[in-house]
Design a protein around this nucleic acid. Structure first.
Lengths: 245, 245
DNA sequence: CGCTATTTGTGCGTATGTATC
DNA sequence: GGATACATACGCACAAATAGC
């Protein structure tokens, strides 16, 4: 029959999910085949597939034709999810705030810079500095950006002065790279001379700093960006949605 | 028949997805009913449902019994996703940093407080203040927390002094509430007298402030929390992963 | 290499439950 | 209550990928 209180496939998904999370079925193991689950729980294949679909969406299993469903994770991923439709949206400056680049130079990382970039000393980077402006109030700079790009991708230098899009996307397009993950850190810093001057703020005044490390699918950390926003000019916002179930 | 090159339901999902993203079907509109889609594209209901399931997972539509499938977004969500396995993980203080509550009082929001809470003046709240400590260095407070809970859930007051878990989870358990979304804002503030004193920091010194609004599945904003961390004692970190597809 | 058995993927048909209007 | 629409569940069949012989 159809209705109990809880749908059959949800019950089955919960049963299987608990088996995985408890470790009864280990990561790397195959679940019983769909046919076997049908027999064992006396339900139709449709019901079994709905349940497996649930486990897939929770990131617990992956299914492959000819193989079966393999357990790839012991814990359901993500109770809360933050989503972006683009990288630029990260800063909530979708298309609104152009960057004026005022400096572009080649640098070799010393110990200090290497530490800030989470990289090794001696490596060469292209350093780019600019100021982000609000389109409405063009005279008040919103934030200061300081970007380091792996020298291997320094060819973007030609396009850098007229950046329509983000540095990251420019590198992606020009070199066919794919950003697999972005690590982000948000903190407070005091503005140095150059930052304060370009931002029309006081030296030593506090600012929100967003540090981002862009990591390509080959594992390479090819870009690091620091954005600084004087207190009150910007706040980082996001919304976390509870995932279904 | 079954196999062409691309699965039927994927073709249908793409067709419908394009109709939404192009604006041909506007946000707020209902899609044709499943039965209608079956007729129009000459496919089975199962195929239609697979396609709709795809659109749901992309966040483009939501389906409701007795109503239909409504378009809720024009663009597929999430090129990048941030994930948390728990709310506590948001602060990266998984279980490590207990909160010492030092104040608990009933307040009625004036215009100023109502603004900060994104609420209305005149509403009653339970206000809770505490200090977050590092387990290793117990003498140095890490951060200051200021939490407002809707007076309707003030019953947690009895448990508040001995908070093992977060306020949010306490409310969830005690009142059977479910947090549907969390809105978060990160900025910079200067510490006031009380905050500086409890944090052993200087009055007026800059701090990272994280403001969170907890919204229940009934749409009610039942808790607002402000966490303040003196410069250098804490940075907010997260990792964004590129989604498949 | 081809053949076969196994397993998931895709697709159809049908029926009943349940929420909404 | 009735009509409508999605949700759940059963069944069957064939396609496509994989592994082993």
């Amino acid at each position: 029959m159809v209705g109990g209180r809880t749908a059959l496939f949800r019950q089955l998904a919960q049963t299987l999910g608990e088996a995985i999370e408890s470790g009864a079925v280990a990561v790397g193991d195959l679940l019983p085949t769909e046919a076997e689950l049908c027999r064992r729980y006396d339900v139709s294949r449709h019901t079994v597939r709905e349940a497996l679909s649930d486990l897939r969406s929770r990131g617990l299993i992956e299914s492959k034709q000819g193989i079966g469903s393999i357990v790839v994770r012991q814990q359901s991923r993500a109770t809360y999810t933050e989503t972006y439709s683009s990288v630029e949206e990260l800063t909530r400056f979708a298309q609104g705030t152009p960057v004026r680049v005022y400096s572009l130079e080649d640098v070799v990382a010393d110990a200090d810079l290497a530490g800030r970039l989470r990289s090794r000393p001696g490596l060469a980077w292209l350093r780019l500095c600019g100021v982000r402006h609000d389109r409405q109030e063009a005279d008040v700079p919103v934030g200061h950006v300081e970007v380091y790009v792996d020298a291997a991708y320094a060819g973007i230098r030609e396009q850098a002065w007229t950046l329509q899009t983000s540095v990251m996307e420019t590198v992606e397009k020009r070199y066919g790279l794919t950003v697999a993950r972005i690590e982000q850190e948000i903190g407070v810093e005091l503005l140095d001379d150059e930052q304060a001057r370009t931002l029309k703020a006081e030296v030593g005044s506090p600012a929100l700093v967003i540090r981002r490390w862009y990591i390509a699918d080959n594992g390479r950390n090819f870009e690091v960006a620091f954005s600084r926003y004087p207190m009150g000019r910007f706040a980082y916002r996001n919304v976390l949605l509870r995932n279904a179930r």
